[in-house]
Design a protein around this nucleic acid. Structure first.
Lengths: 172, 172
DNA sequence: TATTGTTATACTCTATAACTATA
DNA sequence: TATAGTTATAGAGTATAACAATA
């Protein structure tokens, strides 16, 4: 979830016949592997696999010295809800208030967002995207299109829509 | 991806009217937020949201001093392919050989797997699940059923099947 | 008293690079 | 030369706990 990784193979590697024979399996291995195969019929597992795959694609497009997926999401959320507070952002990112400080710090250092003080409430900041941030968002929008195209490559337009609707019900 | 977290709300919090008014938005904010809303029509984003949700559920079920999702997956994979090598396991987990060392270390310390040396090739280990590991797998199987039930709560049996088939094509 | 942002600290996961022992 | 496992090191991401300022 952090560094670029070239390895794209998430598939189960084929074991050679030799290796299979050498392998020391428990006597009832075939029975056991079925009994404990909670991975093959797991929605949670396939969601995780898909997520790992999408991150590989995303890292490949973003490059190593660009903004990270988390920062990218945060930037998008601030653009979507200008004036949002850090606590609200934390809730949307499903991270703690403490963790969001660093996220906003890096976005501010990069010049993409601003912490604007608001007269009504001197305890909170109103987060805002800067012009540079909007430039970055334009760049990200282009990348995002490629990204979506790549991860949806094996799906029809309808299937993609359907998949998103179903996932929405899992994400709540 | 590590510690238990009580916050379950992934939904966008409703901003109060007052806060909305106080917010300092760029002049063309409404236009901009639509222009840069790459999140609402993003398959990648909804996959990530769903994955975060499933991990919250999973952490809730596993408890804080239990095995982690990553270790759980590794244990399942070894049970599924007894005699597998660490490199092969690394590939299946989409992590490096170096990273898998610690995964196997903890599973071995816990007594769930063994590194068996094989006569043919003194360079590799054949990983095997111990009886204690199978006990753990039995426990995990029970938890897994609850887990799947919870994350599939809003889906019919058919929809769940369909969702998994579609995700399979994204995960590759 | 409760909330917001912050700091300090620590832990997990993962990567890269270099090493070793084999093959 | 190439491969499997390992170690050392570093960085990202996140958590918890304690704190100050503010409500």
């Amino acid at each position: 979830m952090s560094k670029n990784k070239t390895d794209e193979k998430n598939v189960v590697p084929e074991l050679s016949e030799k290796k299979r024979r050498v392998t020391r399996t428990p006597r009832h291995a075939s029975t056991l592997s079925k009994e404990f195969d909670m991975l093959d019929d797991s929605l949670g597992y396939i969601i995780k696999r898909a997520q790992v795959r999408t991150y590989e694609v995303l890292f490949g497009l973003l490059g190593s010295e660009s903004i990270t997926p988390g920062r990218m999401t945060a930037l998008c959320l601030v653009a979507k809800q200008p004036g949002i507070s850090q606590s609200e952002l934390a809730e949307m990112l499903s991270i703690t208030r403490a963790a969001v400080v660093k996220v906003v710090d890096t976005l501010e250092t990069r010049g993409f967002v601003q912490r604007q003080s608001i007269p009504d409430n001197r305890r909170t900041y109103a987060l805002a995207v800067t012009p540079e941030g909007y430039d970055e968002l334009r760049r990200l929008t282009r990348l995002s299109r490629q990204y979506e195209k790549q991860i949806s490559a094996r799906l029809s337009v309808d299937e993609r829509k359907q998949l998103m609707a179903l996932l929405q019900r899992v994400a709540l």
